[in-house]
């Protein structure tokens, strides 16, 4: 709209400052380890964190409506384990069918959560805590003390090794991630449904009065989250060439952390696809970079946690400083 506000936009926006953080981070690591910025390494990072990055999109929507979902990795394990066992016992062969089944399972799991939250008026943290137990339990039940290894998965694991989706350009995992991001970017910015998600999170009561079906939007958002978790169940099974009932345990915190670092508000209404992407990238780069700069692998979690705390605290402090500066400028 206005060109002169561009500079202000960069300094004032969360996304822009994250880009700077990301660049500084990359440069710092590259100095220590010149191979870091190689195309292969970058692709490796993207591939290994695709699951977190995709689920961050769903979590973005959930946080936008002022909710939270901590059941996602249980859904992921349930879906991933189910198709894993199907391949193991040769119930299905086709890779596509595996993805379809896992995604559909995720959608149903998410739908159930959404209905209980939106129509049963159960607090999201409680409902998803319950389903975290339930779906994880289902994953173990499906597994029956077994697991699906590389040999059991057959051609399914080849999906994430090949570049078929982009006609040989880039790894399939990354293609899927990019497609998800493009879809979410368009839906959240340019469609009525996307804007309704923002409206519900910003002021649910007003949304109801504007004629938006708040309960339906909420249900849809949790269903989307579940769908992505299901998709990631298939993806994770393929990427790691194994399906285990405890797969990705407590990674939901990484997903939430990615969103929080990306500037998504826990109170709803605020956050963007770009922010979620950058948050997830920052986390990915950090966990990849730590060993490269000589930090022991066992210290990684500590550093990750400290960074999360530091980012949110810094966020508050800069906000306070900005408020103070505004007050001082007020004419009296």
């Amino acid at each position: 709209m206005e060109k002169k506000s561009l500079w202000k936009k960069i300094t004032g926006s969360r996304e822009a400052s994250l880009v700077i953080v990301l660049i500084v981070l990359c440069i710092a690591v590259t100095i220590k380890s010149p191979n870091f910025m190689s195309a292969q390494n970058i692709l490796e990072i993207l591939k290994n964190n695709a699951v977190i990055m995709i689920m961050a999109l769903g979590m973005l929507c959930v946080l936008l409506i002022g909710g939270i979902d901590i059941s996602i990795t249980s859904t992921l394990a349930f879906a991933g384990m189910t198709i894993g066992m199907m391949y193991k016992y040769n119930k299905i062969e086709s890779t596509f069918l595996g993805f379809l089944i896992a995604t559909a399972m995720g959608a149903v799991c998410g739908l159930l959560i959404g209905v209980i939250i939106a129509y049963g008026k159960v607090m999201p943290i409680i409902a998803t805590m319950g389903f975290m137990y339930i779906y994880r339990g289902f994953a173990y039940l499906v597994a029956q003390d077994q697991w699906a290894g590389a040999d059991a998965l057959g051609s399914f694991k080849d999906f994430t090794l090949s570049n078929s989706l982009s006609f040989g350009l880039i790894n399939n995992t990354i293609t899927v991630t990019v497609i998800c991001y493009i879809i979410f970017f368009i839906v959240l910015k340019w469609t009525k449904f996307g804007r309704s998600i923002y409206a519900v999170g910003s002021n649910a009561e007003a949304a109801e009065i504007s004629g938006i079906n708040v309960a339906a939007i909420k249900t849809a958002v949790y269903t989307i989250m579940g769908t992505l978790a299901g998709l990631c169940g298939a993806l994770a099974t393929s990427v790691y060439a194994s399906a285990q009932p405890n797969m990705q345990t407590s990674k939901e915190m990484d997903v939430i952390a990615a969103c929080v670092i990306g500037g998504v508000s826990m109170n709803g209404g605020r956050g963007s696809v770009l922010g979620a992407l950058l948050g997830a990238l920052v986390l990915s780069v950090i966990s990849k970079a730590l060993p490269l700069v000589g930090i022991n692998a066992i210290a990684q979690n500590t550093i990750k946690g400290v960074i999360i705390v530091a980012v949110i605290v810094l966020n508050v402090l800069t906000q306070r400083m900005m408020d103070k500066a505004n007050l001082e400028n007020r004419e009296m």
Partner: peptide, 11 residues
């Protein structure tokens, strides 16, 4: 005002 504080005036 039944507004959406996080969104623009246009929205």
């Amino acid at each position: 005002p039944t507004s959406y504080p996080d969104l623009t005036v246009t929205e």
